[in-house]
């Protein structure tokens, strides 16, 4: 039983801040910073959730977020899988150097690229549109390339030899042999890609406009009363609604993720 004690204590510590957000999200605004502290609201204010949805125009901006996150995710998973497969199962001059370049880019401070990227997108007239994300998706992402490369490298050689003997071209080998067996890696990659766009704040505020921006940007400003005073309880409800899809997504794909990391991770 001792092991449960430690685990449960840790779980409590980890989840306390989140639980506090949940409780705060159903408090009255007057209970928010009351002294002495209000541990539980006298009457749960479920209306906070309704207000959180209407004040931030949730349907509209959540749709934007879902669309943008999905578009990027689909593209980046496909391209990164292709590139990762190339690195893992094919050879060409400079392969190792190129792969180190992939790793090298992961070390760059994001901010270094921030301004030049914006200048470039603006000059191509691609700001206030989803094109930058589409292009990023088409370009594959170093992290995801790394993930797929590690994953595909672990496949036994015989698999593709047999296919080649059967006359399969490299693309068909990829599509018919490797992809059907890459479920965990695909799931893990997809979730991380989705998470990145859904949670990002800096790029949408830099690249999108008031109408097509994402939920992350809208939430930062939406919850104030007509005087401009922050409504913390509704903000918390908004944050719960904002994070919920991600938690659900993780919960659904949890086993895949762990398995994805297991299979990619250990077979050196």
């Amino acid at each position: 039983m001792r092991k449960y004690g430690v685990v449960l204590a840790l779980a409590a510590i980890f989840s306390l801040p989140v639980v506090w957000v949940l409780i705060t999200s159903i408090k009255k605004q007057s209970e928010y910073a009351a002294s002495p502290i209000v541990l539980f609201p006298a009457v749960p204010q479920w209306i906070n959730y309704q207000l959180a949805v209407t004040m931030a125009d949730f349907p509209k901006y959540a749709t934007n977020s879902v669309f943008l996150s999905s578009a990027y995710t689909i593209l980046v998973v496909i391209t990164s899988a292709l590139v990762g497969f190339g690195f893992a199962r094919h050879r060409g001059p400079g392969r190792d150097r190129l792969f180190l370049l992939v790793i090298g880019t992961m070390m760059l401070p994001t901010l270094v690229l921030f301004v030049p990227q914006f200048v470039m997108f603006a000059r191509l007239d691609l700001t206030n549109s989803y094109w930058p994300w589409i292009l990023w998706g088409l370009a594959a992402s170093p992290y995801h390339v790394f993930l797929f490369r590690q994953f595909f490298a672990a496949f036994p050689r015989e698999l593709e030899d047999a296919a080649e003997v059967d006359g399969c071209g490299p693309l068909r080998v990829f599509l018919q042999i490797f992809i059907p067996n890459a479920g965990p890696a695909l799931a893990a990659s997809a979730i991380f890609a989705f998470l990145w766009v859904w949670g990002d704040y800096l790029y949408p505020i830099l690249l999108l406009n008031d109408q097509n921006t994402t939920l992350a940007v809208k939430l930062a400003k939406a919850y104030v009363d007509p005087r401009g005073n922050p409504l913390q309880t509704i903000t918390m409800a908004g944050i719960v609604l904002y994070v919920l899809p991600l938690v659900a997504l993780f919960f659904a794909a949890q086993r895949y993720i762990v398995r994805g990391v297991v299979t990619t991770g250990l077979k050196g």
Partner: peptide, 8 residues
């Protein structure tokens, strides 16, 4: 090899 790498 380069064809697979081309997106990146």
């Amino acid at each position: 090899f380069y064809a697979f790498l081309s997106p990146w």
